[in-house]
Design a binder for these strands. Structure first.
Lengths: 132, 132
DNA sequence: TTAATTTTTGTTATAATATAACACTATGTA
DNA sequence: TACATAGTGTTATATTATAACAAAAATTAA
């Protein structure tokens, strides 16, 4: 059962930090936070992050080099991610829009490419930041 | 006329390198290439890249930290980019699909966010790499 | 239960990507 | 001319990420 994977100690520690944050965290800020738990080196964090991304527990926000927990409980959504990013306050939210994901899932180009994954990032201003 | 901008010397040199490549280039590989033209420091490259991205002459492939020329001659497409990326050979192509971009352009979430930009990256295997 | 294999760990060192700060130059514009 | 704006060149440094290696832990297979 790939999405009921047992996590190792380091993976749990890192996931825990990310899940407690509503916003994406950067690797070195995670490192800072987990030092008290005995994780000392960047590589220990990056290894955990890699694994967590792989199994779909977290996603990487590519344009920000930051990591956010996947709120989707079924959590096999490593392959199709959509985010909205406020360029003022940097608030990030994962978007689950059925119509949009159907559209993207079925997208086919004319180059014979076989897609297995996509990542979409919307940028703009959130409600709060518009009214400033 | 914002998209008929006059480029400076460094901007021209960097754009030239990127336009000559069919594939995305990384900043330090660009730096290596332009040393013979008198550009010596990373910052000179990054500044040119920033400007070129800003005016839509090039795009950044976020998941690869690399830069590719925008082939669209009208070139006001800084705001809506779609790429396909082969995960085996790293071949990258910009996708121009009217239906898809209309769909994305008109996307509205229920959070009151105002979008001004998006970036979509499709990952998979290109024709060549499937048949290996 | 041992041995073999795979995965994870801990560690040091280093690579790759990107920006800060500052003094100076060029260009535009009022 | 004076002023503002944008770009330059430079040094130093910050930030993000991986290589390489030895050891420990977990898994699997005989």
């Amino acid at each position: 059962m790939q999405n009921q994977q047992v996590l190792t100690k380091n993976q749990k520690i890192v996931l825990d930090i990310i899940e407690k944050s509503s916003q994406p965290l950067k690797a070195y800020s995670i490192l800072f936070d987990v030092k008290k738990k005995g994780i000392n080196a960047p590589l220990q964090v990056y290894r955990a992050l890699d694994k967590l991304v792989e199994i779909g527990k977290i996603h990487k926000i590519e344009s920000r080099n930051a990591f956010i927990a996947c709120k989707n409980s079924k959590c096999q959504i490593t392959k199709a991610t959509v985010f909205s990013i406020c360029e003022n306050c940097e608030d990030v939210k994962e978007i689950h829009d059925h119509k949009l994901s159907e559209h993207l899932k079925h997208y086919k180009d004319n180059k014979g490419m076989k897609y297995s994954k996509y990542n979409l990032e919307f940028f703009g201003l959130c409600k709060k930041c518009i009214n400033k």
